[in-house]
Design a protein around this nucleic acid. Sequence first.
DNA 1: ACCTGAACACCGTTCAAGT
DNA 2: ACCTGAACACCGTTCAAGT
Lengths: 218, 218
Amino acid sequence: MPTPGRLSRAAVLQEAIALVDESGLAALTMRNLSERLGVVPMALYRHVANKEDLLAGAIDQFVATLPIPDPDLGWREGLSTLAHSIRNTLMQHPALVGPFMAQPTLGPNGLVVIEYAIGLLRDAGFTDDDAVHGEVSILTYTIGFAGLEVPRRAAGYQPDGSVVGALEIPFDDLPEQFRHVREVRPPLAAFVSDAQFEFGLQCILDGLERRLTRGRRR
Amino acid sequence: MPTPGRLSRAAVLQEAIALVDESGLAALTMRNLSERLGVVPMALYRHVANKEDLLAGAIDQFVATLPIPDPDLGWREGLSTLAHSIRNTLMQHPALVGPFMAQPTLGPNGLVVIEYAIGLLRDAGFTDDDAVHGEVSILTYTIGFAGLEVPRRAAGYQPDGSVVGALEIPFDDLPEQFRHVREVRPPLAAFVSDAQFEFGLQCILDGLERRLTRGRRR
DNA sequence: ACCTGAACACCGTTCAAGT
DNA sequence: ACCTGAACACCGTTCAAGT
């Protein structure tokens, strides 16, 4: 005795995100999802074209939750806040970060982010070309960082640089060929620590600032 | 009349890479791969533990092909050459870039890359901490760039910034909310152009250089 | 030691049918 | 308009058997 209109595209997408957050990307099957919604698998096809469309819809749904920082922040603080905000939002749905990167476009909700970042840079005096390149550099670094962060976090690498439940590299046994690695002993979690994210971000911002002051000098 | 020892792990991994290069990641099934090798699906399990192991092996195999630049290059040129070399190698096997990013560690062949980059930075006078952070920043940016580049390249975005066979954004129809995007008209391929890759890379290198000169001044 | 064959528990998706 | 049920052509992987 099914109630008509029980399902909607939004409800399907929302449940898909919940399923993926709880059980991972592999658990996202039409059969699993339909069962959670109390419906037969084929009922989903009334609301999504196919599985690819389901995934793209779920991603667009969570991109929409991305908070945009205050437009009155200075360009450095605005971009920095945006980058942290993107990383945090992506890490709230780790199983969707891979599919998110694999989308060929950012989608309509992504345009809001781009508008914000380009606006900050133009208002600060960057040329249009540098504003676009700068915005993309920040986004590429941030999204790429999150993409590498997800599997490492799952393997036990912590934001503070430590590792839980994984083997450390046996530095003392490394051959002479790896002299620097042996001496420096870079922590395994170096790739995904909060400090590392901040370091790379500040490097890019420093590089942008140099372009701004060089441009003014001319 | 099967010849014993016909298969080997290396042969299986090599054929997996060839299959994925030709037909994409979705085509990599035990059944497809075994057919190409003239063998029954279950024969593969003598040489790989399971599909996950097959993919990890294939990735490690192609990471091994990554060329390491001349150690006598200056730190800026060495890192820049390394970054371009990584991007080029990854783009030769686009279907493996996603799985590559999803690996929790770089593997033994990745250690060679890390050793090279940290060595360059230490020899140039960077502190150990900055050498590690700098190396990771460059790798994160480069691998992340390639990760975003693959699906966009497949959608027709070209390295020179143009787009083949895809719709351009209707900039004139954008609402006032998107003032900057409307005025600047950033090319769709901005994310994956050669010029963009170089710009972000130079920003990070500029940021690193500033840390080097600041450190010396103390 | 290495490969085979049949079987099991899954997939996404089609098609025709119900209400 | 919306949901159902059966079926099809696939998956990865197990197990027991061949040579």
